[in-house]
């Protein structure tokens, strides 16, 4: 598999701006910004075109616009599959999307990551997500890859956690946290990683360790977080400190309502969704 040199050498930004050239636009987006919004690509016209026609052969343009040189039919097929998967995702047709991504992963093992993320986020299919994450992680055994926000180990930890294996989840979360914390300091670790590890500690009945993580999470979170506060209260509860737990639940509820005033009505972390009435019910108990 040939990765276009232009993409590797920093022309990706202009590639992403070249909307008239689907090859360069999508390829650049796919390789450099995996947080692509499916809405960007929605058009039945484009999907039908992709299903009916193969992509056009390689094109080379002037230096300002030449982004992707498609060197072989495998790469054309790969880009076609990835484009189709995004269209299916934007149509919320997740089954077709993962079918295309499975094929894409066979052509390019790096696409295991994309398949894993779709299984994890859209289908909540943790065993399949884990399978693809392991395959992706095996490409670089000595390096914990990242999707730009979270390391692969974190996503693997989420899979294990949702499959009920909290001990392995803690181990995976720790790989991601420790590698960054030891190198640059704990303040560089996304607070949601600490929350996720704390949730697993709580499931393992280890509230002290959970509380340690949540204290760091609270420091790293830019705002008052109902999510962090809610799990702090849970930790207090497990430690047998009911008064502090009740007070902390009330704080969490206050933070949630404050967020609502600001127009934030959704849980702050989709992997650890905490809702207003979760907090409300817990505080009443």
């Amino acid at each position: 598999m040939v990765i276009p040199s232009a993409l590797e050498s920093g022309q990706a930004k202009s590639a992403a701006q070249s909307f008239n050239d689907p090859l360069s636009h999508y390829a650049a987006k796919l390789r450099n910004n995996r947080n692509l919004e499916p809405n960007e690509l929605h058009s039945r016209r484009r999907l039908v075109q992709l299903e009916r026609e193969p992509l056009r052969p390689s094109r080379r343009r002037g230096p300002n616009r030449t982004i992707v040189e498609v060197r072989d039919s495998t790469e054309m097929r790969l880009i076609n599959l990835l484009e189709r998967s995004f269209h299916y995702l934007s149509d919320q047709n997740y089954e077709q999307a993962v079918a295309a991504l499975e094929q894409a992963a066979q052509l390019n093992p790096k696409e295991h990551f994309h398949a894993a993320r779709t299984y994890l986020r859209a289908l909540h299919d943790y065993p399949r997500a884990l399978h693809h994450l392991n395959a992706y992680d095996a490409l670089t055994p000595d390096f914990d890859d990242s999707d730009g926000l979270f390391p692969v180990s974190y996503l693997k930890g989420l899979c294990y956690r949702n499959m009920g294996n909290h001990a392995e989840a803690v181990r995976q979360f720790s790989i991601g946290i420790d590698s960054l914390a030891l190198k640059h300091g704990s303040e560089w670790v996304n607070y949601k990683q600490y929350v996720s590890r704390a949730v697993s500690y709580l499931a393992l009945q280890q509230p002290d360790k959970a509380l340690d993580d949540l204290v760091i999470a609270a420091k790293n979170c830019p705002n008052f977080s109902p999510l962090v506060t809610y799990y702090k209260a849970k930790a207090f509860e497990q430690q047998g400190r009911p008064d502090e737990a009740k007070r902390t639940y009330q704080d969490a509820l206050f933070f949630w309502q404050a967020n609502r005033v600001k127009g934030i009505g959704q849980p702050e972390d989709q992997y650890n969704p905490v809702f207003e009435d979760d907090i409300d019910n817990a505080s009443k108990q």
Binding site: R44, G265, Q266
Partner: peptide, 19 residues
């Protein structure tokens, strides 16, 4: 057309998904 509708929006007055 469906593509112009807002991308999956999800809120439920009484406590959202938890409820």
């Amino acid at each position: 057309p469906p593509g112009d509708q807002k991308y999956p929006y999800y809120e439920y007055k009484k406590g959202r998904l938890g409820a």
